[in-house]
Design a protein around this nucleic acid. Structure first.
Lengths: 108, 108
DNA sequence: AAAATACGCAACCAAAAAGTTGCTTATTCG
DNA sequence: CGAATAAGCAACTTTTTGGTTGCGTATTTT
């Protein structure tokens, strides 16, 4: 389909998914599908779809317990986004000047 | 339409747009629409569309000179993404343990 | 002035994404 | 056991996205 990093970027590009992800991170325990969807206007099935794309991005994993499914959240994949950002970080401030610095350091 | 940060996330979620953005950042001078689209398989009009969404995310701005339009690139908006990431950075490593630390620091 | 270049804009198209409804299955509770 | 709960799956609709073609216009170039 598409590469890992794009899946990751797309997963967090949706506001609902960012909200779900955030809810999972700050929750004091793992949450079930229903527990999550109760926090949103959307139908459970809609939430399930979002969770699936979060899962495919590696940001959550699912664990069945009885009739319920609990979501484990994983923040580690975000390090890839951070890595991507890192490169451009050197250009914050005045782009052109910093670009000069970057090129100089490459040539030395 | 949608909030600023979502526009930004969506802008960088597309691989072609990330490529355009990257090309602009590492270019030694500003590039025109044609100069950019020559580097891609896609039609000029397709590229123009992508540039427009980059523009709406604040990542580029356009400047007309004669019959050409040059793209100025801006990395600063990415700081917003970095800010978003920062919060989750404390959970990298072992999520649950770090979450404990986070909650503890809130209560002290 | 004619030809070529750089571009915008609108219409269109296909595929993907976002979200819904309806139905089935499995588990738990009384 | 029967009712209620948790959830999966498939089909379907709507909207968004990614990309194209076609055409008009302004600016250069020759």
């Amino acid at each position: 389909m598409q590469d890992k990093i794009t899946k990751l970027f797309k997963a967090i590009a949706d506001p609902t998914r960012r909200d779900i992800f955030h809810a999972l991170v700050i929750a004091s325990s793992t949450l079930s599908i229903s527990q999550i969807s109760n926090q949103f206007e959307m139908t459970r099935q809609g939430i399930t779809k979002h969770i699936k794309t979060l899962e495919e991005a590696g940001l959550v994993s699912l664990e069945s317990k009885g009739r319920e499914r609990f979501c484990n959240v994983h923040t580690q994949p975000l390090q890839e986004v951070n890595k991507w950002l890192k490169f451009y970080e050197q250009f914050w401030g005045d782009s052109m000047q910093d670009l000069g610095n970057y090129l100089d350091s490459k040539n030395s």
